[in-house]
């Protein structure tokens, strides 16, 4: 769609290859290659229906109009980074996608299912959408392993043994299998956030939402979490990520969406958005971000 099409798998020396099942149930061989310059090839699948559709979404908190006619389509395998000043509605928008917030006008379709008051539809959507929070939100009374197996056991009805094997697999993937028996309070912030990512992945979601996953972390821990997210991106996961990490956006995003005052102001490839901002608002935001770094 943006930088490179699905044919990007043909880039020399793919480093990651894995088999995934897409939402149509077809097994597809996906080669998510890391290009030599550190950029990740796009895994956008234009042949499949879009993973997420937001159609003229409006939301108010009391009298405050926090989302204004938000239109956004995310293709299967696409990686979208959302940025914008605080209070611009970024978090509210992605929280609407798994209905942690309810929108009051417009339509939201996830994986082809429309979000409504229908609890069954909501269950179906939440099973397929994983979320990672700024403040981790691990369950403090459960071990790391129990945090990861809880939803597979109670939502996916998976036998405990399978759930534990799966959890260990993902904990290995985020490089903390040795912490499985510990409690969240015994881990560092970076480790907790990686557990949170593994916990979401244990549900084998098709879509992952990241709500400022590194904002609560010390600088030296940001990298370990970003590396985990880059790894996910390289595997072709559909992702929407609210973050101010411009380096991550440049490396991973197919598209950057800039929001301000509840609206999507600009959207395009990272180069287009960061190097050639069209609107004054984005120029102002970028100058502030760059000054801060």
């Amino acid at each position: 769609m943006t930088r490179a099409g699905p044919e990007a798998g043909a880039v020399p020396a793919p480093r990651f290859t894995h088999t995934a099942t897409n939402d149509l149930g077809h097994e597809t061989k996906m080669s998510a290659a890391l290009e030599t310059d550190g950029f990740i090839a796009s895994s956008v699948r234009t042949d499949a229906p879009p993973a997420i559709v937001l159609d003229k979404v409006n939301k108010w908190f009391g009298a405050l109009h926090v989302l204004r006619d938000v239109d956004l389509q995310v293709a299967l395998g696409e990686r979208v980074v959302v940025c914008g000043p605080s209070g611009s509605g970024k978090s509210t928008m992605i929280r609407c996608i798994n209905r942690l917030e309810t929108h009051q006008e417009g339509r939201i379709l996830v994986d082809g299912i429309e979000l409504s008051d229908d609890l069954r539809a909501l269950d179906a959507i939440r099973r397929e959408v994983g979320m990672v929070f700024q403040s981790f939100n691990l369950f403090p009374h459960l071990t790391v392993l129990e945090n990861c197996t809880l939803a597979p056991i109670w939502v996916r009805k998976m036998p405990k043994k399978h759930a534990e094997e799966l959890a260990m697999e993902y904990l290995t993937r985020v490089k903390i299998p040795e912490q499985a028996k510990k409690y969240p309070g015994q881990l560092s912030g970076g480790q907790q956030q990686r557990v949170a990512i593994a916990r979401a992945l244990c549900m084998k979601p098709k879509i992952m939402l990241f709500d400022e996953p590194t904002s609560a972390l010390d600088p030296e821990m940001i990298k370990e979490v970003l590396d985990t997210m880059v790894m996910l991106a390289a595997e072709g996961m559909t992702m929407i990520c609210v973050t101010h990490e411009m380096g991550f956006a440049r490396q991973v995003a197919d598209r950057v969406v800039f929001m301000d005052r509840g609206e999507i102001v600009e959207s395009g490839t990272p180069e287009a958005v960061f190097n050639d901002p069209k609107t004054e608002r984005l120029q102002l935001f970028l100058s502030q971000i760059l000054r801060g770094h």
Binding site: L100, R126, R127, F133, S135, N137, H141, A151, W154
Partner: peptide
């Protein structure tokens, strides 16, 4: 955040109360 994390994982509110909120 505990409610939200559990709901985002697909747990129904009864299960959230029983497995996550009440024990804490």
């Amino acid at each position: 955040g505990q409610w939200e994390a559990a709901q985002a994982l697909g747990l129904r509110s009864g299960s959230v109360l029983r497995l996550i909120v009440l024990p804490q």
